[in-house]
């Protein structure tokens, strides 16, 4: 816009002034653009708004034939009901445990692998890296069948291991971090070698601080992945003791034919589950956007 404005000033000298008609058309176009974006933004936000206001309504108010767009009275006890109905406390603890452990281990593995690929020289390096990248093309479902058999044979069904170990390595994260490591000048590494610094110390003191933004992106994406994972946990850890938040949430409110779910409580549960994600969005948005724009994956 500023460029356009500048060029307008420039052009004003040699080109005739815009006629009033054109100015009016321009203003109308601007209004149309804002109106379109405004309507789209409302559509995007509406489900969140509906979730929040429904979550504090009473069931009687929720099923009114003419809906209220603002709750008549606030029933915050819905949130307590939701917490107990869906057993959210246990679900949160399980998910946080799985998320933290798998993120920590995954970061260690990713950093070590990215370091080897970015800084060290060994036979077959490029071939190995290309092979890793090639696996990214294959849909995950193809692995799932055999992995299900593997973890059953290992006796891991309904344990935390099964939720953590199979997904510790992400080729995408290794790729992302390797690219970042390669931007760090090699001279730093050589200088450190001359000083007799060990690889691990160098990694810890130089490379990790320099690559911190990428590591934060990876951490957030991995944590969000645990928070949102549904299919694999549903398949291999179907007992209540190892339920993760998404599985527990969906299972706690199943609509049977003719039966009625307490919708406000359900919406309160959804709001509680969405809250941590919303906080992440509010404070760490730029890291997510950075990681996301380079992948096509969610979580």
């Amino acid at each position: 816009m500023s460029d356009i404005a500048k060029s307008q000033v420039m052009h004003a000298k040699d080109i005739k002034q815009l006629s009033t008609q054109q100015t009016v058309a321009k203003i109308l176009a601007k209004i149309a653009v804002y109106a379109f974006l405004g309507v789209m933004a409302l559509i995007v936000l509406f489900p969140f708004y509906w979730m929040l206001i429904s979550s504090v309504k009473s069931l009687d108010e929720y099923i009114l034939a003419v809906p209220t767009f603002f709750p008549q009275e606030f029933h915050f006890e819905n949130y307590i009901d939701a917490f107990t109905t869906a057993n959210l406390g246990t679900l949160f603890l399980n998910t946080v445990y799985v998320g933290v452990v798998s993120t920590a281990l995954s970061l260690v593995i990713t950093v070590l692998s990215a370091f080897a690929f970015a800084r060290l020289e060994f036979k077959g390096k490029n071939a190995l890296f290309a092979a890793l990248l090639a696996t990214m093309m294959i849909p995950g479902e193809l692995f799932t069948i055999t992995n299900y058999i593997t973890v059953s044979k290992l006796g891991w069904l309904n344990t935390f291991e099964v939720l953590i170990i199979p997904f510790l390595v992400s080729v995408f994260y290794i790729y992302l971090l390797k690219q970042n490591f390669m931007q760090i000048p090699n001279e730093l590494y050589l200088a450190a070698k001359v000083d007799g610094t060990s690889d691990i110390k160098y990694l810890w003191k130089v490379m990790i601080p320099l690559a911190l933004p990428t590591l934060i992106s990876i951490t957030i994406l991995k944590m969000m992945g645990s928070w949102n994972s549904y299919m694999w946990p549903n398949l291999v850890a179907d007992d209540a003791a190892h339920h993760l938040v998404t599985n527990g949430l969906r299972g706690a409110f199943v609509v049977e034919e003719g039966g009625m779910v307490n919708f406000p409580v359900q919406m309160a549960a959804v709001a509680i589950v969405s809250f941590p994600l919303f906080m992440v969005f509010l404070f760490l948005r730029k890291y997510i956007m950075k990681g996301v724009s380079r992948s096509g994956i969610k979580g």
Binding site: V245, T246, R250, V270, V273, S274, R285
Partner: peptide, 9 residues
């Protein structure tokens, strides 16, 4: 930044 099961509900 949402949980597709939760917002689906």
């Amino acid at each position: 930044v949402t949980n597709s099961i939760a917002i689906g509900m």
